[in-house]
Amino acid sequence: MTWDEMGPLLWESTGQTALMVVWSTLFTVLLGLPLGVALVVTDRGGLLPSPLLNRVLGLIVNVGRSLPFIVLMIAVIPLTRLIVGTTIGTFAAVVPLTLGAAPFFARLVETALREVGRDTVQAAQAMGAGRWTIIGKVLLPEARSGLVAGLTVTVVALISYSAMAGVIGGGGLGDLAIRYGYQRFETTLMVVTVIVLIVIVQLVQTLGDAIARRLARH
């Protein structure tokens, strides 16, 4: 395979990977951030203690995290059909990607929020701040560096999960490497694909680290 043949293939696959990762990152944050906050505030001694809810949420998160992604992808097919209208294609992959990454991100959010000192939260309570003010103006802003670091790890995980999206016709770089590189012995294409993936992951990690460090400086 020549470079001229590989170019468009790589371009198209990179686009598909980007599409999957961007959308699933968005939905992962929308789902995982509130879930992470809920894990912290419903805990014993939290802002809204609710041991039962805390236990249930913890269980859901753990189940989500222990399912292998490939199994999850197949298992949620009915849900995917319900939400996207189809069960194959790049958009269809966003549903399992989100469901796979959200519990993971939620735990990272939880960890970041727990880093905020009890002192700081109690100082806000002593000033008469209510729960939502404390969540919005104390917990989240104070944890922002940790949240960005967690998001970076999550995006990298999503890039890696998205390589399996070929199974449901999602396309993407991982799928390209498997179909051409592995099944058709196009070693060069496989190597180039892997390099492109490495570069993307590096870029994401470096950018995430830089932002997290900037935020942590204060």
């Binding site: 000192g117 002192d119 700081t120 109690q122 000033m127 008469g128 209510g130 802003p141 104070e142 204060h218």
Partner: peptide
């Protein structure tokens, strides 16, 4: 109680300031 607390100042051993502000 929240409103009453606004009229009671408190200072802390380890300051408890918001590092992001």
């Amino acid at each position: 109680l929240r409103r009453a607390r606004q009229g009671i100042g408190m200072i802390h051993q380890h300051f408890a300031l918001l590092s992001s502000r």
